[in-house]
Design a protein around this nucleic acid. Structure first.
Length: 639
RNA sequence: GGCGGCGUAGCUCAGCUGGCUAGAGCGAGGGUCUCAUAAUCCCUAGGUCCGCGGUUCGAGUCCGCGCGCCGCCA
């Protein structure tokens, strides 16, 4: 049995952030879970690469649109790879095979009489080259503030209005088609209010899929983007999709337009659409202008992918909005993963080592066995309903029951009593077996860590091939030798970890902005606040006035200059600086600059740099050297 | 303005078709044990279940009105 699920395809005007990661992680979880239920699960994601915004962004980075898309699509693919997500197909809307599917979808709709040529009238900003959707005649452009013009353009239209009744019937007959229910209500209300036809092509945009034989028409947004769900698995017999996972902001397109397109084309409809909520950052919406977009990479580096997965699935009620904060992330990690699961693994395995030479004994506690059985069912049922936080709660119920059980049995006392062999065996087997079951159940959520615990239990059967239907108490083999024991979730100190993540965050954001050709944050964005330092901290930095005595390019490095700088010492300092794109060597000769004199030496392209030159830098822009208006002697210290 | 949803312990949330003396996890305070990752385990929260009115033997749980948030639409 196949189970085909999708994430939305992400628009390449932004680099991957935690919101993208959230949807994709959930999709990966569902895929793994479905596989454990015995399905051949296939997961696709991709990138949405057409449109004016992409054309512009490409221009900013002096690339062709396709070159630009290549870069950003690669960023997404790299991110999913780093996060260990099992993506079967990454579909790009610029792939030729996708274009064929879009054109085919259009032709089918057209043949069935649901496409007509009409004219679209809207408010258009001739400076920004875009339609302002909500504007009335005379309204200014929200981007540049200049007046918009009323423009009429010939477009192809899709007869969405013809589908009102059929859509309502669909929602009525298939209750689970749109979930959660609140989204379903919204959609029904929207459709009941009446549907107007959709303009699905543009003639003033070049960067899009051409409508065959109808130049200069290209497909506009949804006809193009939604079709990836089919093109990604074209010819593989996987359509219709079993699940489209989406964010709540695109419910309308998925629950109304998409089924209408498919009905018009005479194609099968997806089985289910599930819309999740938004991730808020410490109560406020994440947005570029607030500068509070969280990236997954720093989190991965500091506490690992599984911690992020666990947090997102446990802390956020799936379907509702959730709040992300580094505090809560680390809190969950320490209390649930380190103290809970990790510690249970650690104490159980180390007792097996100490008291039984690392061999699994025989014996089993009935109460815990029964609870484990219940937990298997409860967790599977909850995951099946997309109630991930509930499913995890039930697994933690088992974990905490075993912790309690261990204290009651006090195996460390039993080990000292001559006649308690059997009871000790039972205690150890029960703990280890419960750990095995919890680990198997958690595999979809914590794939990396579950594999580690599995190996530490010494189980030979691959975890990825465990089937939930066959998971039962008592399958842990007596006599089995456990593996090497080590902490799976080492407890972490919150403050340094959070600081580290914040630091990395800034670096990652800067890199990504450079890729997107963004020279600076939009106006009004407060720069991310750095942690406060004391005057003593500052005093550690030895800043001095230096005079550039020589400057020359570094072979094989476009950005580097090799400088000799006099800072009042016997010999001039050798400093390698990444400023070649901003300054020519001759511009720097005899210029006074600010040097960090006590920076650890660092080797760059074979040269050892003894210090750093101070420059202001704008994200994605060129550095500007610090300088003085008054004359100042070489070697003077800045403080 | 119309429609939909929500408002329960410091925080995040459970409480289905009305019977609860109102629950869980986290956090906080106290104690215990020592196998374990300064982990575990035990005890401790006295919360007008947003307010008011109603239905009922009995209402976080149903109905009406009001207040406050949020979403969709206009």
């Amino acid at each position: 049995m196949k189970y085909y699920l999708t994430t939305p395809i992400y628009y390449v005007n932004a680099a991957p952030h935690i919101g993208h990661a959230y949807t994709t992680i959930v999709a990966d979880l569902v895929k793994r879970f479905k596989r454990m239920q015995g399905y051949d699960a296939v997961l696709t994601t991709g990138s949405d690469e057409h449109g004016v915004n992409v054309e512009r962004a490409a221009l900013r980075t002096s690339k062709t649109p396709l070159e630009f898309c290549d870069v950003i699509a690669a960023e997404f693919q790299k991110e999913w790879k780093r996060l260990g997500l099992e993506i079967d197909c990454f579909q790009r809307t610029t792939s030729p095979q996708h274009a064929r599917v879009v054109q085919d979808l259009f032709e089918r709709c057209r043949k069935n009489g649901y496409i007509y040529k009409g004219s679209y009238t809207g408010q258009y900003c001739i400076y920004d080259n875009l339609y302002v959707n909500e504007a009335k005649p005379g309204d200014p452009c929200p981007d540049c503030g200049r007046p918009t013009e009323t423009i009429t353009e010939e477009n192809f239209f899709f007869k969405l209005s013809a589908f009102q009744d059929r859509l309502l019937e669909l929602y009525n007959q298939r209750f689970e088609f749109i979930q959660p229910e609140t989204r379903r209500n919204e959609v029904i209300a929207f459709v009941k209010a009446g549907l107007s036809d959709l303009s699905i092509t543009r003639t003033n945009v070049k960067w899009g899929i051409p409508v065959q034989g109808e130049a200069p028409h290209v497909f506009y947004v949804w006809f193009d983007a939604l079709a990836t769900y089919m093109s990604a698995v074209d010819g593989k017999g996987l359509w219709p999709a079993d699940l489209h996972l989406i964010g709540k902001e695109i419910v309308r397109f998925h629950a109304i337009y998409w089924p209408a397109f498919l009905m018009a084309a005479g194609l099968e409809l997806p089985k289910r659409i599930f819309a999740h909520g938004w991730l808020l950052f410490e109560e406020s919406k994440m947005s570029k202008s607030r500068g509070n977009i969280v990236r997954p990479e720093p989190i991965r580096q500091v506490i690992g992918v599984d911690a992020l997965r666990y947090f997102l699935l446990r802390e956020v009620v799936f379907g509702q909005d959730g709040s992300f904060s580094y505090d809560a992330l680390v809190g969950r990690y320490n209390s649930d993963l380190a103290n809970g699961l990790g510690n249970l693994a650690s104490r159980t395995l180390s007792m097996l080592d100490q008291y039984r030479g690392g061999l699994i004994p025989q014996g089993s506690d009935r109460a815990i066995a029964a609870l484990a059985g219940q937990t298997i069912h409860a967790a599977e049922a909850a995951f099946g309903r997309f109630e991930f936080s509930r499913g995890l709660e039930s697994v933690w119920g088992l974990i905490s029951a075993v912790d309690k059980f261990i204290v009651q049995q006090a195996p460390w006392k039993l080990a000292k009593q001559p006649h308690a062999e059997a009871q000790l065996n039972t205690t150890l087997y029960t703990s280890a077996e419960a750990l095995r079951i919890a680990t198997a159940l958690l595999y979809p959520v914590l794939p990396e860590s579950a594999l580690k615990i599995w190996a530490q239990l010494g189980i030979q059967e691959p975890l990825s091939s465990v089937c939930l239907a066959d998971l039962h108490w008592g399958q842990l083999l007596t006599g089995q030798k456990i593996g090497q024991v080590s902490a799976v979730f080492p407890r972490i100190d919150p403050q340094p970890a959070i600081e580290k993540m914040r630091e990395l965050e800034v670096a990652v954001t800067a890199e990504q902005n450079a890729l997107l050709g963004k020279t600076q944050e939009p106006a009004g964005a407060p720069p991310p606040e750095s942690p406060k330092i004391t005057i003593d901290d500052f005093a550690k930095v030895d800043l001095r006035v230096g005079l550039v005595q020589s400057a020359e390019p570094v072979k094989g490095a476009d950005k580097l200059l090799h400088l000799k700088v006099d800072i009042g010492e016997r010999e001039p300092r050798t400093i390698v600086a990444g400023i070649a794109e901003a300054y020519k060597p001759e511009e720097l000769l005899n210029r006074k600059v600010v040097i960090v004199a006590n920076l650890q030496p660092r080797k760059l392209r074979g040269l050892t740099s003894n210090g750093m030159i101070v420059a202001a830098s704008i994200e994605g822009g060129k550095p500007v050297l610090a300088a003085f208006l008054e004359d100042i002697p070489v070697g003077a210290r800045l403080r």
